[in-house]
Design a protein around this nucleic acid. Structure first.
Lengths: 159, 159
DNA sequence: ATCTCCTTGTTCAAATTTGAACTCAATAGT
DNA sequence: ACTATTGAGTTCAAATTTGAACAAGGAGAT
C-alpha cells in the first residue's frame, strides 16, 4: 500500500475525455429531446426499450435493470409517463405481484415522432465524429467496461 | 427529410456501449467514494479541480464550466461543502460581484485520503480494462466529441 | 453622471433521484 | 398447512438538480 498510483498523461486524457464526453452528450440529448418533444432522455429510452420488447411490455424490475435505474426511480418515471398517456400498467399474468409496463399507441406515436430528431442528434454529436476504428474501440473496450461492472454487481462476493 | 436514418449494428453497439458504460462507471465511482469517504463523485471532482488551480481557488462560474454543472447546482454543492469544512467562499479581489471557492486544509486532507481508493477504482473499472490503443481512441475520439459539443455551446449560431 | 446591457452569483419552487422502510406475493423448509 | 425467507413494487422523506426570476456589479455609450 504505497502512495497513490496516479494516472499518467496518456491515461488521464482517456479518462477525462470519457467522463466529460459522457456528461456533455447526455446533457445535449436531454435538451434536444426536451425541446423537440418534451421528453427526457430517460423517458425516450424507456419508450424505446418497451417498444422493442415483444408485446411492448416489460416487468418493472427487468426494465429497471436494463436502464440501470433504481427501482423507486423507475416507479416514479412510469407514474409520470402513465399520466402523460405514454404507457400503462398491467398485472403480470403468471404472477400477482408482478407489474408490466406497456407502451400505449400514443407512446408509439410519440416515439415515432421523436426518433428522427434523436437519431440525427446522436449521429451528429457522437457517431459521425468518430472513425470506424474508434467506434470499434468504443464497442469493444467500453462493452468490456460495462460487462465487468455489471458482473461484479451480481457476483456479490466481491472481495 | 426521408425517414429515420437508424443506426446500423456496428454503430448501435458503439453507442449503447458508450451510454451504458458511462452510466455504470459514474454510479460505481459515486458509490465507492460515498462508502469510503462520504463524498459524492461531484464533490471529489470539485476538490480535485480546486486543488490543481493555483492558489487553490476558482471563481464559481469558472468552476461550474469546468465541471459542466449548472450555476445553481454549484452554488448548492459549494454550500454543502462549506458546511462540511472542505471549502470556503471568498470575495474575488478585483471584482466585487465575483466569488472564489477555495479549498481548505481539511479539504486537502480529505482529498489526500480519498485519492488512493478513487484512483485505484478508476484503474480497476476503466483504465486497466482497456488496451493502450483503445485508450488512445477514447482520448482522441471522445476528446473530439467533447470539444465539438463544447464549441457549439458558445458558438451560439448553430445551423 | 445616467442609461442600457451583459455578467455574477444566489434564491426559489418544482422536478427528479436516492435509499430505507414497508406490503404483499412466491418459494423453500419442516 | 405453517413459518421463515426472498423477491417485486411502492411509498416516503431527504438530498440533489434544474431553470427561471432576481439582485448587484461591471462596461460601454451618450
Amino acid at each position: 500500500m504505497g502512495h497513490t498510483n496516479w494516472l499518467n498523461d496518456e491515461e488521464m486524457q482517456a479518462w477525462i475525455a470519457f467522463i466529460s464526453a459522457a456528461t456533455l452528450v447526455d446533457r445535449e440529448l436531454d435538451q434536444q429531446l426536451k425541446e423537440d418533444m418534451g421528453l427526457s432522455h430517460l423517458q425516450y429510452t424507456i419508450l424505446m426499450t418497451l417498444n422493442r420488447a415483444e408485446s411492448g411490455a416489460l416487468r418493472m424490475t427487468e426494465l429497471a435493470e436494463r436502464l440501470i435505474n433504481s427501482k423507486s426511480g423507475l416507479t416514479y418515471q412510469i407514474g409520470q409517463m402513465e399520466k402523460a398517456g405514454l404507457v400503462t400498467r398491467r398485472q403480470c399474468e403468471w404472477s400477482k405481484s408482478g407489474v408490466l409496463a406497456e407502451i400505449t399507441d400514443e407512446g408509439r406515436a410519440t416515439l415515432e415522432r421523436a426518433a428522427p430528431g434523436h437519431v440525427e442528434a446522436v449521429r451528429e454529436i457522437f457517431i459521425d465524429v468518430l472513425s470506424p476504428e474508434e467506434r470499434k474501440a468504443m464497442a469493444d473496450g467500453l462493452g468490456r467496461v460495462r460487462d465487468r461492472i455489471a458482473e461484479r454487481k451480481q457476483g456479490g462476493t466481491c472481495w
